[in-house]
Amino acid sequence: MNILEIRNLSVSVEEKMVLKNISLTIPEGETHVLFGPNGSGKSSLMLTLMGFPQYKVVSGEILFKGKDITHLPTSERAKMGIGIAFQSPPAIKGLKLGGLVQELAGRFFPDFSLKEESEKLIMENYLHRDVNHGFSGGERKRSEILQISAQNPDLVLLDEPESGVDIENMKTIGEAIRSILHRGAKEKRTKSAFIITHTGYILDYLAADWGYVLVDGQIQCENNPYELLKLIEEKGFQLCEVCELAKHKE
């Protein structure tokens, strides 16, 4: 079964096209990676998948677990099993992180152990703090993963989990994500992930199955993510102009 299927998706923000004719499929249990330079539309794709209203679907469709969710509200998508860790999440004054996490666990994952999971993410001393308020880059990321952990989604969207994070934190975050993705796995993983990465550091902790390069709102090519990362590290994103893998070469 495919957990996510995007068909010919074009999206605009304030009349400007940010995503053009995107198609991709993530089979259940797989981890796919999205590479691309700043401003190429990576975050726009994630927020479109999450149903944020400023991202207007001009054409195409999004299927989650085989159901058309193109026009479903954000909270419905989350309830169906999509979870997102934001690149720069907002702070919410007065709302305690521990309270929010427990509320989510109560709704979506009653087996969740706040103590165990928060210790894993070194967040046990942040539970009484306001969500993301005064958190450093690494703390925000860990707070995001803790919330995702309680939400226990079937598809995890990660928007640059490594930005602003040191190596120590990277390891903590990477291992926590891996353990979430392996929940309930028997012979095969059932949880899937779609990850935006700039540097590829997260791939040291997670095995990825497939990768895409997004430039100017279009998928330029797709391939083994480690091969893509190697090429990008060597040549930068200009590689698409010369690469024979590129789909949209004119």
Binding site: P73, T74, S75, A78, I84, I92, G94, L95, L100, R107
Partner: peptide, 18 residues
């Protein structure tokens, strides 16, 4: 908060209480 699976009304109430 809605992306965490809370309805709009629930999210609003949580923000106001906070």
């Amino acid at each position: 908060l809605m992306s965490r699976g809370l309805s709009e009304a629930e999210a609003k109430s949580m923000i106001v209480k906070g």
